[in-house]
Design a protein around this nucleic acid. Sequence first.
DNA 1: CCCAATTGCTTGAGACTTCAACATCCTGAG
DNA 2: CTCAGGATGTTGAAGTCTCAAGCAATTGGG
Lengths: 161, 161
Amino acid sequence: MSSGTRAPVAGDRPRWLDRTEMAAWLPLVRLVTLLPQRLDRQLREDAGIGHVYYQVLAMLSEAPDEQLRMSELAGLTATSPSRMSHAVSALEERGWVVRCPVEQDGRGQLTRLTAAGRTAIEQLAPGHVAEVRRLVFDPLTDDEVDQLARLTTKLLGSASR
Amino acid sequence: MSSGTRAPVAGDRPRWLDRTEMAAWLPLVRLVTLLPQRLDRQLREDAGIGHVYYQVLAMLSEAPDEQLRMSELAGLTATSPSRMSHAVSALEERGWVVRCPVEQDGRGQLTRLTAAGRTAIEQLAPGHVAEVRRLVFDPLTDDEVDQLARLTTKLLGSASR
DNA sequence: CCCAATTGCTTGAGACTTCAACATCCTGAG
DNA sequence: CTCAGGATGTTGAAGTCTCAAGCAATTGGG
């Protein structure tokens, strides 16, 4: 406890979740626990890296000149600068990525895909896509895919703030 | 790479995601990254524990006699036995939970909420619910909450297997 | 009864994430 | 010009998660 800033004063207690909300909340929590687990496991078996690391390679492979700034990578993958720094270091050790300074801004760092990195993502992508299909898109109808897009986009608004 | 079992043979390459699917996939990945982050942060500020640990307390507080077996806890929270064992150890150190052997099965362990644990969850719950509302339910209409329940439940089917 | 296979859980090592502190560079007000 | 404040990244420590290995208890087939 340690004197939280959010004092649990009786009276300002928010409404608890009703039955309908629980019917959405419980599976949602399970899903956000389980989905990263599955994505991580499949990639770790195939390449020894987790999903975040794969995302870095994926974003780089689609960026102009196959390079991005740390802050852009962090933004695109919704991770902290610190986490991204560690992640890029790990990818650098594998030789899949290199760091180099930015011309115009002495603070910045560019991360660029190496040839080995490109090979890696090209070999990884098919298996990953297959897993994504199996986990997410195969069970859904076209309409449901649209619903999923709308819902997740809407929820991102509040989660990003 | 290291000779994955899933050989990237040209030809068996699965269909890449189309525009519609991407419109669902990208926000879904962000959501699945961001939501646990937010839940963790709020709980960590208030109590110094992450969301998984809170879930343990929450499930225990609603169980008969406020106790559950390790395997039940693991199942309910969609985590591995190992993770749950570590988690319960951490909660035990805080004095919020105790372990005791099961009568009928010498292998099993029961985890029971302590008085301090009950106090903790009672003080934590209002702030947590408020955060859940802010992040998930406030932005959605009633119809959308229903859609969310159906979609997440459907996706859980494939992710659990 | 006996033992091999299974179940339930724990442990330790290594990898990953977070947090706070820090170093560096840029920007703009005075 | 100068310096305070902001922005960009990095680092190390502490906590957490995963994986593989292991232990103890139970179960089931012979």
